[in-house]
Design a protein around this nucleic acid. Structure first.
Lengths: 205, 205
DNA sequence: GTCTATATCGGGATAGAC
DNA sequence: GTCTATCCCGATATAGAC
C-alpha cells in the first residue's frame, strides 16, 4: 500500500478509536513508522486528511442510499439497514463528536446535512413501498414521524450504545441496532408481516 | 453575582454556543471582563469548571428523573418530557461531543451512564403506569424496545435537530422533540387515549 | 480578589538535507 | 519520498505585585 493511502487508513483507525481531536499528526506518523515531515509531504495539513475521509464516507453512503424504486421486502430492508450501520461504524468518528467536527469544518456541515436528508427520503421510500405492498398501514403523518425516528436512530445508535455500555466501538453488535430501527415500524406492520418480522428477528438476532 | 458563580454561568453559555473544546479559559475571562489569573484563582483548571457544571447537571437531572410511582396521565408525561428536554438543552454542550467529553473525563463517563440508566427506568415506570391504566397496550418486549428508543431520542434529539437544520441550539423548538418522543408510543395507545393524544398535540404544538 | 506578566507545554506545520 | 531539526503559535497554568 502506498504511503498516501496508509495515512488515510491509519488516520481512520485512530480517529475511530480515540476521537479525531484527540489524535495528533505525530501520533498518526508514529503509528505508521514514518516521520511527521513525510506525512506532511502527502497531506498539507490535518484538515486535508479529514476532508479525504469525509469524501469517501460521503460517496459511499450516498451510493448506499440510492434506494431503487422497486418493491422492497422486509429482508431487503434488514440487509439495507445492516449495510448502512456498517458504513457508519466504519466512519464512526464523524458521529462521535458531530457538532465539534461540523463546527470546525462548515463546508462539511452542509454535505452532512444532505446525507441526513437522503437518509430521510430513503426511509420514506422504503416505508411507502411497504405500505403499497399492504405490509404496513400508517397515515402519512405517522410515516413521517417514524422515518424521523429511524434516521435519528441510525445516526446515533452506535454512539448511544458506546456511551450506555461503556463499550469500544468495535465491540458493538450492529444487529441490535438494526433490530432497534425495525422495531420502530413494527407496530404499523399488518399482522402477517409482523409475524414474519418476529421470525426474522429470531433468525438474525 | 459572585465571580465564582459568574465563571460557571459564562462557561456554560460559551460551552453551549461553541462546544467545550473550542472555548479557552482566556475566552471565558475575556467575556467576563476579568483577567485569566483571576479565573484561575477561583478554579484551579478548566476541568474543575467542567466538573462543577457536570455536578449541577447530574443532580438536577437525577432529581427530575425521580418519577413517583403513581398514576401518570398523558399530560403529566408531556410536561415531564418538556422539563427533561429543557434541562438537556440547558447543558447541551455535554451532548454535542459526548464521546470526546467522556473520553477525557472517565469519572464522568460512569456517572453519565448512570443517568442514562435512570432515564430508561423512568421511561419504563411511566409506560408501565400507562399500561396499568389501560391507556396503553404492549408486550414487555415492545415496551422495552420503545423505552430504548425514547431514551435515545431524548438524548440526541437536540443534536440531531441542530445538525439537520443547521440551527443554533437556542433556536430549537423543544415541543417538537416532545412530540417526537410521544409519537414513539402512540401506536401502542388504545383508541381513546390516542384520540386524546391527538387533541393534546394540536394544543401544545 | 484581582491584576499583569510570563513560564511551559504540546500540537501543527515548515526547511532543507538525503 | 523520506528524514531530522526546528519554528511557531495558541492554550493552560503560575508568579508575584497591588
Amino acid at each position: 500500500m502506498k504511503t498516501r493511502e496508509r495515512i488515510i487508513v491509519t488516520s481512520l483507525a485512530l480517529f475511530n478509536q480515540f476521537g479525531e481531536p484527540n489524535v495528533t499528526t505525530l501520533q498518526i506518523a508514529d503509528e505508521m513508522d514514518i516521520s511527521p515531515g513525510n506525512l506532511y509531504y502527502h497531506y498539507k495539513n490535518k484538515t486535508e486528511i479529514l476532508s479525504e475521509l469525509f469524501n469517501r464516507y460521503e460517496s459511499q453512503m450516498m451510493e448506499l442510499l440510492d434506494v431503487p424504486e422497486v418493491e422492497i421486502s422486509l429482508e431487503d430492508q434488514w440487509l439495507f439497514l445492516h449495510l448502512v450501520f456498517e458504513k457508519i461504524a466504519e466512519f464512526r468518528f464523524l458521529y462521535q463528536d458531530l457538532v465539534n467536527v461540523l463546527s470546525k469544518h462548515p463546508k462539511i456541515a452542509n454535505r452532512f446535512k444532505r446525507i441526513l436528508d437522503k437518509k430521510l427520503t430513503a426511509s420514506i421510500t422504503i416505508l411507502s413501498s411497504l405500505q403499497q405492498q399492504r405490509l404496513l398501514e400508517a397515515t402519512d403523518q405517522e410515516i413521517k414521524a417514524t422515518c424521523h425516528s429511524i434516521v435519528l436512530t441510525i445516526t446515533y445508535w452506535i454512539s448511544y450504545e458506546m456511551v450506555s455500555r461503556g463499550a469500544d466501538g468495535d465491540a458493538i453488535d450492529l444487529g441490535k441496532g438494526v433490530f432497534q430501527v425495525m422495531s420502530l415500524m413494527v407496530p404499523y406492520l399488518r399482522n402477517d408481516a409482523r409475524t414474519h418480522f418476529q421470525e426474522m428477528s429470531t433468525t438474525y438476532l
